[in-house]
C-alpha cells in the first residue's frame, strides 16, 4: 500500500488545535475538540491497517468514540449551565477566574 494517512491525521489534529485557539464560541470549541478526537480515531484505525490487526483497532476506535460521546455530553451540560448564567456562548465571558 502506497498511501500514508499520517500526514492527513496531523493536518486534522493541527486544524483542531487551530480551531481551539481562534474560535471564540463554545460550540466551535466543541468542534475543535471533535476534530482532535477524529484525528486520533483515524490514527488508531490507520495503525490497525499498518499492523494488519484491523479488528483490534476498530474495537478500540469504537470504545474511544463512545468515551468521546460521554465527554461531549458533559461538555454540553456545562455549556448549558454556562449559557444559563451568561446568556451567551462567547469565551470572552469566561474570564472570571484569573490571576
Amino acid at each position: 500500500m502506497n498511501i500514508n494517512l499520517l500526514p492527513f491525521v496531523f493536518a486534522l489534529f493541527g486544524l483542531g488545535l487551530f480551531c481551539l485557539l481562534t474560535r471564540r464560541s463554545l460550540v466551535k470549541l466543541l468542534i475543535g475538540l471533535e476534530l482532535l478526537g477524529k484525528a486520533t480515531t483515524l490514527a488508531i484505525i490507520w495503525a490497525g491497517v499498518v499492523q494488519k490487526t484491523p479488528a483490534t483497532t476498530q474495537s478500540i476506535a469504537l470504545l474511544v468514540i463512545s468515551i468521546e460521546a460521554v465527554v461531549v455530553a458533559v461538555y454540553l451540560a456545562l455549556v448549558y449551565a454556562f449559557h444559563r448564567h451568561n446568556q451567551s456562548l462567547d469565551t470572552d465571558d469566561m474570564r472570571r477566574l484569573k490571576g
Binding site: L17, L21, L29, T91, M94, R95, L97, K98, G99
Partner: peptide
C-alpha cells in the same frame, strides 16, 4: 507570573500548543 493566568481558555490552549 500571575499575569500569565489570563483566565482566557484560548490562551491556556496556546500554552499547550
Amino acid at each position: 507570573s500571575c499575569r500569565l493566568q489570563t483566565g482566557d481558555v484560548h490562551w491556556n490552549l496556546l500554552y499547550v500548543t
